[in-house]
Structure formats: C-alpha cells, structure tokens
Write a protein that binds this DNA or RNA. Structure first.
Lengths: 195, 195
DNA sequence: GACGTGGCTTGCACCGGGTGCAAGCCGCCC
DNA sequence: GGGCGGCTTGCACCCGGTGCAAGCCACGTC
C-alpha cells in the first residue's frame, strides 16, 4: 500500500464523514440520524467526527477543502470595476461551475425531501458569504452598511436560487437560475448618512 | 387584587420570561446563561420556559404577541401598487415605529457586547420574514423565485440595518438607517425561464 | 355555590449535540 | 532508533429540547 501521508489521510476521513453524513441523511432524514450513526458509518468515532466538523449541519454543508481553496482564488481574482454589485455577482457565478451539479443536487434533494431542513440552507451558503464579506470589507472599509447589504443580498440570491432550483432539471441548470436571480436584484451604494 | 384571567396571566409570564432572558444575557452573555437560570429568574420552571418558547434564542427575539398582531395588520393593509418591492418596503418601514427604540436598543447591545451572537440575528427577523413571505406568496403564487428574492432581500436589508445601527445614536435613528438600506436595494421580477 | 372540564404548570426521565481532558497510537523528522 | 507531536478515542460532563403523567386552578355550567 502507498504511503498514507498525514495530510492525505486527513482529507480522506474528512470526505468519508461528509459522504456518510449526506448518504444517511438522504436516506432517513436529518433528525433520524445521530452523529454517532454518521461516525460509525464513516468508520470513526463520535469524538473524531467533532474533530472534523464543529456541528452536525457542518458535516453536510461545509465545503470540500479544495473547493474552499478555489473560492479563495476566485475572490482574489475578482474584478474591481466601478460597479461593486456586478463584481460580486461575478464571484457568485464563479462559485457554481456549469454542468457539475452532482453534490449540489444531492443537497438540494435533502431539502426537498425534508422541508424542516430549509432553515439550514442559510448556513449552507454561509461560507460563501464569509468570503464575500471579506472581499466587500476590503473594498468599502468605511461603509459597513454597504458591505452588509452586498453580502446579505448576495446570500439571499444564492439561497433563493438554490431553493427554487429543482434537481430533476425542470427548472433548467442551476447556474442559469442563479444568473436570473442575480440579474433581478441590485445593490447600490447607500447614500451617506444625513449630515 | 383584580381577577387574574388566564389570558392576562399567560401574557404576563411570557413577558416575564423574555425580560429575564434579555436581562441575564445582557449581563453575562448568551452562552453563560442557561435556560434554567432564565426560568428561575422569571419565577417559573424550566419546563414552563419551553411551554412558552421553543428555543433559547426565541426567548430573546420572539416578538411580543401584541407586536405580532400589529405586524399581521400591517401585512393586511399593505398597498398593492405595480411595484412589489416598493410595497414590501412599505411594510418593512411599518415594522419599526420611529422613536420607540427601547427593546431594539437592548437587543442591539446584546449583539455588540457578544459578537458570537451575530449569527442569531437572522433568526431575530425571521418572524418578519415569515410574514413577508406569506404576503409575497399570495401575490406571486406562480413565481417562487421572485417570492424568495423579495423576502430574502428584505430580510438582508433588515439585518444589515440592524447590525450597522449603533444604539448610542451615533448612526442616527434606526428607521432612517433602514430607509437608506431599503432605498439602495432593488428587487425586480426575474425574467421568466428560458422558453 | 358546588362541580367537572380542560388549560397550565411542574417534575421526571430521557435523548442527543457539543466539549474538555487525558491516554494511547503512529507517522515523521532528527 | 528514538523522541516529538499530531490524530484518535473513550470518558465524563453540560445543557438544550421533548414526551409523559400528575397536580392545580380558572372558568363555564347547573
């Protein structure tokens, strides 16, 4: 057997746990699966589960480390035109590559099958929002209202598109839906406070 | 003493628990206060606490029943112009009466003192979002994307304004801030799916 | 004014998510 | 080969949240 370097080992168990979590929850529903179940299915201990994921929801929605890297890169390369909202949309579009809908469909089906789950959808995109937030923050350090409006609105558009999208294809490709959602919303710099 | 009708009694303990919760959390922070503490401070039992509030956060952010009634009334009276986003803004503005900033300031101070708390802010406005959602739903039953964009964006604006507002008055009145937030965002009907 | 119904409270027992701690295992580097 | 340090695991614990069943008492009825 090849040398199981520590890093590779870690990535592997990370993915093992996430895969187990998604599979089990898809089968039985969120409430009917305990962390212990997931850990066992992934061949680790309950305690180890929490070494990798801070919460049960995180196991379902935390982004694959490689994807997180890609997101960071995206943020770094974001354009800086005069239209901040347009730039933000550019990043959002980059988050969802066309065609590659596999895990997205899985997660979306989770929400469809178990509606109680909808309240976690916000958390699902929170890591994107965090990235957007640092971007916006670096761009408008003096205008916190603008920063929060930009990131919050982008998050709303993401969630709206995600919830409206149907994994059976009846609503078309997710990327297109997200485009429509982003196109119908606008955030402009708020006028400065009364002086 | 006057007759303690059941309804009045109930409202009183509801308010007692919420007041105790806000006070204690403001003093010690969210994590350092247990449900048992709150119940004891309110002079009831732990179990009763959960008869009134489904979760610990709810005790802090659930709207006073009378306020909830007012919100419902507001939704019923909302205008129905051709501009749905404008109508929605009208409702949002009605939620926050000018001048009456007391409990708002209390809650805002909570977030200021304990930043870990920020993630619950969304939950804080969720009851508003729910009301907006039914309104939007009744208005655009055939366009779920539009419905979700409207309510999600409105919620984002509310949260952004709430987080940017400073209870010390340095950012002016909350209602004004909310106005600026709402004014700098727009949601238009998404173009229909490709056909 | 007595009485029974039913809502509200409460204690109890239980589940399960999340955490600190300390011991052990083993890849890695010197 | 040997020690350092990261990763795993079990254990004990805290606390949020829930079902249940018993008791209490306001309220409507006669």
């Amino acid at each position: 057997m090849s040398e199981p370097t520590r890093e590779a080992q870690r990535l592997q168990t990370w993915r093992g746990i996430q895969a187990a979590a998604i599979r089990l929850v898809a089968e039985r529903g969120f409430a009917a699966v305990t962390v212990e179940d997931v850990a066992a299915a992934a061949g680790t201990s309950r305690r180890t589960f929490f070494n990798y994921f801070p919460t049960k929801v995180a196991a379902l929605f935390d982004p694959d480390p490689e994807l997180a890297d890609r997101l960071q890169e995206l943020v770094d390369r974001a354009p800086r035109t005069g239209d901040a909202w347009a730039d933000l949309c550019w990043i959002c579009r980059g988050v969802v590559p066309r065609g590659d809908d596999e895990t997205l469909a899985l997660r979306r089906r989770l929400v469809g099958d178990f509606p109680e789950f909808t309240e976690y959808v916000g958390a699902a995109h929170r890591y994107v929002e965090r990235a957007l937030a640092t971007w916006a923050q670096s761009r408008f350090p003096a205008d916190p209202l603008h920063v929060r409006l930009l990131t919050g609105t982008a998050g709303a558009a993401l969630s709206a598109a995600f919830l409206t999208w149907q994994p059976d294809g009846s609503t078309g490709e997710f990327a297109d839906l997200l485009d429509r959602a982003l196109a119908s919303v606008r955030v402009d710099p708020p006028e400065p406070a009364q002086r």
